[in-house]
Amino acid sequence: MDKPTILVVEDEAIISRDIVMTLEAMHYHPVCAVMTADDAITKAREHTPDVILMDINIHGTMDGIDAARIIRDELHIPVVFVTSCGDEATIARAQESTPYGFVLKPFSDRDLKVAVDCALSKKATETPVIQHGDWYRFTAKES
Rank of each mutant, 00 (worst) to 15 (best):
D73A: 15
I71K: 15
V82A: 01
I91K: 12
I70P: 08
E74D: 15
I71W: 15
I70H: 08
C85T: 04
C85S: 11
Q95G: 05
V82P: 03
I71Q: 09
T98I: 06
A94N: 04
A68V: 07
Q95S: 00
T90E: 08
T83E: 02
V80R: 06
A89P: 01
E74S: 15
A92E: 11
R72A: 10
A89F: 06
V79Y: 00
R93E: 14
A67S: 10
P78Q: 14
P78G: 12
A68S: 15
I70W: 04
V80Y: 05
S97D: 00
T98N: 09
A67H: 12
I65E: 02
I70K: 12
F81H: 07
V80D: 08
A94E: 05
L75M: 15
I77Y: 10
A92H: 07
R93I: 08
I77P: 08
I70V: 15
P78V: 11
A94G: 02
L75C: 06
A89M: 13
T90W: 06
T90N: 10
D87P: 09
E74Y: 13
I65D: 02
T83I: 06
R72H: 13
A68H: 12
P78S: 11
A68T: 07
I77V: 15
I77D: 12
T83H: 00
T83G: 07
G64A: 01
G86C: 14
L75H: 10
R72G: 09
T83A: 05
H76Y: 12
D73N: 15
R69Q: 02
F81A: 09
E96H: 00
V82G: 09
A92K: 07
V82K: 02
I77N: 11
V79M: 00
P78E: 07
A68Y: 11
D66N: 03
R93H: 05
D87K: 10
F81I: 08
D73G: 12
A68E: 12
T98Q: 05
T90C: 13
T83Y: 06
V80W: 00
C85P: 01
S84C: 11
I65G: 01
F81S: 04
D66A: 15
H76Q: 14
V80P: 02
T98E: 12
V82N: 04
E88V: 11
A92R: 11
I91Y: 10
V79F: 09
V80S: 06
R69N: 07
T98F: 09
V82C: 09
F81T: 04
R69H: 13
R69C: 08
A89C: 08
E96G: 04
I71L: 00
E88Y: 08
A68Q: 13
Q95D: 00
I71A: 06
A92I: 02
S97I: 01
A89N: 11
R93T: 04
I71P: 07
